[in-house]
Amino acid sequence: MDKNAPVSRLTSFPDGPLELKLQVFLPLSEAEKSLLADLQRTRVDCRPGVELMREGEPIAKVMIVTEGWAIRHRDLSDGRRQIINFVLPGDFVGVQSLLFAQSDHSVSALTKVKAAHFEPDRIIELFAQFPRLAAALSWCTTREESIIAERVASIGRRSAYERMAHLFLELLYRLRTVKSAPGKSFKLPVTQEVLADVLGLSIVHVNRTLRRLRQEGLIELDGGRIVIPDLAALEKTADFEKHFLHAGPPPRRVERQLEALENGAVLT
Rank of each mutant, 00 (worst) to 15 (best):
K21N: 10
I71Q: 00
S108K: 10
P27H: 15
A134W: 08
A60H: 10
F240W: 13
R43N: 13
L22C: 09
F100A: 07
V93N: 02
A31S: 13
R54E: 12
F127M: 07
S77W: 12
F13Q: 08
L245H: 04
N4S: 12
R54I: 15
V87L: 07
V44K: 04
L201N: 01
T66G: 07
G90E: 03
V266P: 11
I228N: 00
G68N: 07
N207V: 09
T177I: 11
P120L: 04
E241P: 09
V190K: 01
E55V: 06
L26E: 13
I228A: 02
D104Q: 12
L10A: 09
T42W: 00
K187T: 05
I155T: 08
L175W: 10
R214G: 08
F86N: 07
R122S: 00
S29P: 13
L126N: 06
G16W: 05
E216Y: 10
L218A: 02
H243L: 10
R174F: 01
P27F: 15
F86S: 05
E259R: 15
T191L: 07
P131C: 11
S180Q: 15
E150F: 11
H73I: 03
Q215S: 12
T141R: 06
S8M: 01
V227S: 05
G68R: 07
L39F: 04
D104A: 13
A37N: 04
L39A: 03
V87A: 01
